[in-house]
Design a binder for these strands. Structure first.
Length: 799
DNA sequence: ACCTCCAAAGGACACCAGCG
DNA sequence: CGCTGGTGTCCTTTGGAGGT
């Protein structure tokens, strides 16, 4: 199918509804910007967006089941093109989409290049060329160029007189289907349809290419349609299979455990296969209702009738129904949105469903499959299998490696650990089994709590474990106890599949741009395979890294940060959760409270690095309005913390608290960093930092606080004395932004113990992530406004 | 503790230019 | 003639600061 859409975002729903039966879509004038994400359910997208200008852009959408590979993505002068190669029953075929704007000229070399890449090709595109002898009404300049290309002989065009463009009474054939010799004979049923929406413009062209394309291999993981599962049947079948395993069989060797696990896995898999249908991977188009689909069909019918009769009544009928269709699609969209919104408000905001919905709209992480080349260490991988193996090599060599540990106490620790191990071995051999056996109730309890996450290589989904039977639990208890007793984990459980997520804004060609996510069952001497588009790589050993969701990860983090609280005295309490840290203390007098917190914070500060070192690079690039907002926030928070009234001048606050204005603070930090870089003679860093500084200075300072207000002296004096405790702590440890959000002091007027809490909130993490991902300034701006919003919410909550 | 003023921010809308 | 993005205008809301 080929069409010039003029903004694909507006018409996605209609295209999906009308042309879902077609496997390959060539779309011109997508109007997509490079930073915009676009995905179509069930399709791989290959796009070439127009840079630095409006309009334009081409896109090829190819059904996900078809094996395909992008080999050209080029813009020559104004000509935009994307070419993808597919394997067919008649050998390789290159499919290209080309857009030539009305103002541009056809670049012959683009067509030559396509032909050079593969001399069996199919080119679809809005060439804006009219050539009378091939079915157009007239011939224009680009038509002459097209004629020259056709005269060279290698490309031919579909010769019919169907017009592809209509506006008012003007009709012309300006979209073309070009193909090389054998391929063109396989094209039939060429048809044009009513334009999208209500406008008069390009018509969709559909045709049938009578050859079969090679399909991608099926996913190595079995995917079931759990919605249609018959769980009763599953439990019945599971018990039938499990009964075949002898419960009295003793598990005495490692081999026994391995075979027993495989047998159990097989039972579950077989039962699942019988009790639930496999997910068929069919495209569900939920965006358009059945009524609308009927209307769309009607639109087709009426359109054809009008083209045949060309009478006024049919025309009016067609006009009316096309308006109905676009209204219906719009209403469907609104309905869907309101439905989503109503489920959101009905649910608890902490539930996973809410966040899934948010993610859907946020679509920063939508799957972007990439079918181009992958380059690693001078080798280029072209197909999925090669790519998967390249990733395997990359992860094995660079990511999951264990580097020799050369820290001072490493050897001592090692010998100590070894002696403990020896001792334990002796004890276990003498006293049978130290561990109390795992009971069936414990297993039931764990099984019930399993989340519905993706299965590992054994293809056993947690859903099927949650629907356990008593017999299964007995078997599981037996094998778990055997595992604990023998200290051997079945080989099958050590395998992992790694799927890849492309880090935003990174070069797709380089393996390091991808974040590996392992789908695994266990740990300890694991092996893994990389999965790309259903193709598995060779398996390789994982030597480092902790599994997602494993209790080990937080444990290791705790070990890592354990000493951060070592030097903090007893009077200060602290809480550590994942990457969040909080300190708090209580006291009768403000003075001692201040001292206590200050010393604790200083100790922590020694350990902790200032967030600004993570965040400055992005903060400094934001525009003035963000700085202003941050300044306002800082002022506000300081007032809140100090218990000062609204009319206190900001200058005065900063003067008394000795907290610099946020931007000045940033500059100060930056200058420090520059001087440090200079002492280390790191020229590139120095240059970068200086550039940032100049950007910062170019933003004119608007927060001009002029007159210091006269403030009732008594209040201020008491207030400042208390406040400096919170504020000095804050400024020394964490960036003003974060501290502000959370530093609160109970006003001195309140009798009894007052408490000060400092927390490094999520702001720190968000800023840190923002830098590491390297988002665009636009995204950062949004992110920062979100952070600020969040901080404000905290502030409000504290009031 | 409250009022008032000013400026900035932000939303709704119209309009225009550029692209096709 | 449609779509997009930018600009400008009008209006309301909000924030900051001064004043009583």
């Amino acid at each position: 199918m080929h069409i010039n859409v003029t903004s694909i975002k507006k018409h996605t729903d209609e295209i999906l509804a009308r042309f879902n039966t077609y496997d390959i879509w060539s779309i011109n004038e997508t109007n997509l910007k490079p930073h915009q994400l676009f995905s179509l359910q069930g399709f791989n997208i290959f796009r070439n967006d127009r840079q630095n200008k409006q309009g334009g852009g081409v896109l090829l959408a190819i059904r996900k089941s078809i094996k395909c590979f992008e080999i050209l993505n080029a813009t020559i002068e104004t000509n935009e093109a994307v070419a993808v190669q597919i394997e067919t029953s008649l050998g390789q075929l290159l499919i290209a989409t080309v857009y030539i704007p009305p103002a541009g000229k056809i670049q012959q070399k683009l067509f030559d290049e396509i032909y050079q890449l593969n001399n069996n090709c199919l080119i679809l595109g809005d060439l804006n060329a009219a050539l009378e002898e091939k079915g157009s009404r007239k011939t224009n300049a680009k038509g002459v160029q097209l004629k020259q290309i056709l005269e060279e002989g290698y490309l031919q065009c579909i010769d019919n007189n169907l017009t592809t463009y209509a506006r008012n009474n003007y009709e012309e054939k300006i979209d073309w289907i070009l193909a090389t010799q054998p391929t063109i004979l396989f094209i039939d049923e060429v048809e044009t349809h009513a334009p999208l929406g209500c406008k008069e413009d390009h018509k969709p062209i559909t045709f049938n290419l009578s050859m079969t394309a090679d399909l991608k291999p099926k996913s190595p993981r079995l995917t079931f349609n759990f919605n249609l599962a018959n769980w009763n049947l599953y439990r019945k079948k599971l018990n039938e299979y499990l009964n075949k395993i002898d419960l009295k069989q003793k598990l005495e060797t490692k081999e026994h455990i391995d075979t027993y696990t495989i047998a159990l896995t097989n039972c579950i898999t077989l039962a699942m296969k019988e009790a639930m249908p496999l997910a068929n991977g069919k495209i569900r188009n939920n965006n358009v209702s059945e009524v609308t689909k009927k209307l769309i069909e009607e639109k087709h019918k009426v359109y054809r009738k009008w083209r045949k009769t060309t009478n006024e009544i049919d025309k009016k009928h067609y006009y009316k129904i096309r308006e109905l269709v676009s209204n219906a699609i719009r209403n469907d969209r609104i309905e869907k949105l309101t439905a989503i919104m109503s489920t959101l408000s009905a649910k608890k905001m902490q539930s996973a469903g809410v966040w899934n919905t948010v993610k859907k709209f946020h679509n920063k992480r939508t799957k972007q499959s990439y079918s181009g080349q992958l380059i690693y260490q001078n080798t280029t991988a072209n197909n999925d299998q090669e790519k998967a193996n390249v990733f395997a090599r990359y992860f094995e060599n660079e990511i999951f490696v264990s580097k020799p540990d050369e820290t001072p106490f490493h050897n001592q620790v090692n010998t100590r650990a070894a002696s403990i191990k020896r001792k334990m071995k002796m004890e276990t051999s003498s006293r049978e089994n130290k561990f109390s056996p795992i009971t069936e109730n414990e297993i039931k309890c764990i099984l019930k709590q399993l989340p519905n996450s993706a299965p590992g290589p054994d293809a056993i989904h947690n859903r099927s474990l949650k629907n356990y039977t008593k017999l299964l639990v007995i078997h599981l208890a037996k094998i778990f106890n055997a595992i604990v007793g023998m200290g051997h984990i079945p080989q099958e459980w050590k395998k992992a599949n790694i799927i890849l997520l492309l880090k935003p804004k990174k070069e797709k060609k380089v393996p390091s741009s991808y974040r590996p996510i392992s789908l695994l069952s266990c740990l300890d001497q694991r092996t893994a395979s990389v999965e790309i588009e259903s193709t598995l790589s060779r398996s390789f050993a994982l030597k480092s890294g902790t599994p997602q969701g494993s209790p080990l990860s937080p444990l290791l983090y705790i070990l890592f940060t354990y000493d951060s609280m070592n030097n903090i005295e007893d009077h200060t309490q602290y809480g550590l959760f994942a990457d969040d840290t909080a300190l708090w203390a209580g006291s009768n007098t403000i003075k001692s409270l201040r001292r206590r917190l200050q010393t604790s914070a200083n100790e922590f500060n020694r350990w902790f690095r200032s967030i600004i070192t993570y965040g400055c690079t992005i903060l400094l690039k934001t525009d003035n309005s963000i700085w202003k907002r941050m300044q306002i926030l800082q002022n506000k928070a300081l007032r809140a913390a100090l218990g000062l009234p609204m009319y206190t001048s900001t200058e005065f606050i900063h003067l008394r608290t000795k907290i610099p204005m946020i931007k000045n603070y940033a500059k100060e930090i930056l200058n420090k960093a520059i001087s440090r870089a200079e002492t280390y003679q790191d020229n590139t860093t120095t240059e970068n930092l200086k550039r940032i500084l100049s950007i910062l200075q170019s933003i004119n300072s608007t927060t001009t606080v002029t007159s210091a207000a006269t403030i009732p002296s008594t209040t201020v004096v008491t207030a400042t004395s208390t406040v400096t405790s919170a504020t000095t702590v804050v400024s020394s440890t964490i960036v003003p932004t974060t501290t502000i959000t959370s530093a609160t002091t109970v006003p001195p007027t309140t009798a009894g113990p007052s408490t000060t809490v400092i927390t490094s909130t999520t702001t720190a993490t968000s800023i840190a992530t923002a830098t590491s991902i390297g988002m665009s300034s636009e995204a950062i701006r949004q992110e920062i406004s979100l952070i600020i919003l969040f901080s404000l919410m905290i502030l409000i909550a504290q009031f």
